[in-house]
Write a protein that binds this DNA or RNA. Structure first.
Lengths: 243, 243
DNA sequence: TGCAGAAATTGGTTGGACCATTGAACCACT
DNA sequence: AGTGGTTCAATGGTCCAACCAATTTCTGCA
């Protein structure tokens, strides 16, 4: 028996606006990139003030669901559904080196688990797709004699997708966007990423062999090399933007 | 060398408001739960319209940094700092059983890594604290003849804290809040959580022995039992709120 | 046809007004 | 003293009607 009494909701205008907006998007089958109605039109149709519409849209903008361009309109940035759950995270003090290392520890956790899940669940098509990305990456490595962050990232994303759980890609992509200036930047280390190169192939081998524990172990090794490179980089240039 | 030049911001009123607000919070050394100035006062002091202040606060409210109570005021919900980074995640279709399982896969990843890191970094004090929580949990298990989600949660939080990376606790806590109705609810399974009980002690042993790989392995086993219980529960009552 | 400038569109901001809720002060009654 | 009701000021929530700034579209001239 629970004595939990939820507080009654007398008014929730902006929530109602968002709910109506979800319905509209479904009705019109709008996808990412498409434009949704003007604030003024929404206000008129929903019989609320434009201010209320704006508060609702501000919420969605803060959640990254929508992008507002002055003079142009408001555009969807992601798919919306009636049963979305929001999990906003704020990393305090994430700008310095220790913040980067902390996100990398999260990435290590997720990368290992994604690889393991991938080994269990990936079908023939997914495995082929991953191998394709791997080939592209290795080719780029050979021709340009060094890691290419673009192709490397594509490979990892293919693994996340094949894990069957979109949360992996969402979380790691969010961190990737926050720190792309670091992830892409060699930090003064000449052969940044070189050490991680061979593990891409070994991860793929374990996935293709449907060996989750092996895939997990190889993924852990890969991230360990990245961490080492970052530590070297930090030692090199003392992280110029440290506060 | 990066050719990235951020576009100059001719207008960024609400961002400026938030920046000023961060400064104010620092200046006054405000902590969570404390009240911050009235919207009207902020508008007057910052020389912006009250609507602009409201948009800024709406953003913070959406990020869970602040709580607004009509008739009372606006209160801090979390610590704010000038170098915060925001990472809002939205889980599409997270209300049904598969959504819960997806978050549990994330938890498995983080739980394993947190335990491993904890085994490496936990000092004597942290280990003692974890053991204290463990004793409390085992005592509760004995007297009430069953898992107690409250004490169980306390134990895990102690592990996250001792991992030395606050992100683990942040992310898992956010998921815990989203799904607390599931995590706390036995889902029709009588002995829910029973199977996971012994692994708490084994995880602690591996942590106390500073054995990261062992701790990781035990944590994986624990989550596996929880997943099994959930699957049984889902089979039992068909997830009444499935859409 | 091509393009510069005008006009319409759209999000951003302002100021002012009123409503709904809260909480404290006050008061009457027990 | 304490319980309950009333009043009233403070505060967030909503609304309106403008105007500003960036963008897009249209128009008319060369």
């Amino acid at each position: 028996m629970t004595d939990f009494l939820p507080p009654i909701q007398t008014t929730a205008r902006d929530d109602a606006v968002l709910k109506a907006l979800v319905g509209f998007v479904r009705q019109e089958a709008l996808g990412p990139g498409e434009k949704l109605p003007t604030e003024r039109i929404l206000a008129e149709r929903l019989k609320v003030s434009r201010n209320t519409v704006r508060e609702a849209l501000t919420r969605w903008e803060g959640l990254g669901l929508v992008e507002r361009r002055q003079g142009s309109g408001t555009y969807l940035k992601a798919a919306v559904s009636p049963d979305m759950l929001h999990m906003p995270l704020t990393l305090a003090g994430g700008n310095d080196f220790s913040g980067l290392m902390r996100t990398l520890e999260i990435r290590r956790a997720l990368e290992a688990e994604a690889a393991a899940l991938c080994a269990v669940r990936a079908g023939k098509a997914e495995i082929a797709e991953i191998e394709r990305k791997l080939d592209i990456m290795e080719e780029a490595f050979r021709t340009r004699a060094g890691m290419s962050s673009e192709e490397d990232w594509e490979f990892h994303q293919a693994v996340y997708r094949a894990s069957g759980n979109p949360l992996f890609e969402q979380i790691i992509s969010a961190m990737h966007e926050l720190f792309h200036r670091f992830w892409e930047h060699p930090l003064g280390v000449r052969d940044f990423g070189h050490a991680s190169f061979p593990y891409h192939r070994t991860i793929f081998d374990r996935i293709a062999a449907h060996d989750p524990d092996g895939a997990r172990a190889e993924a852990l090794k890969l991230i360990a090399t990245v961490e080492n490179d970052l530590k070297r980089g930090a030692a090199n240039l003392k992280m110029s933007d440290r506060k």
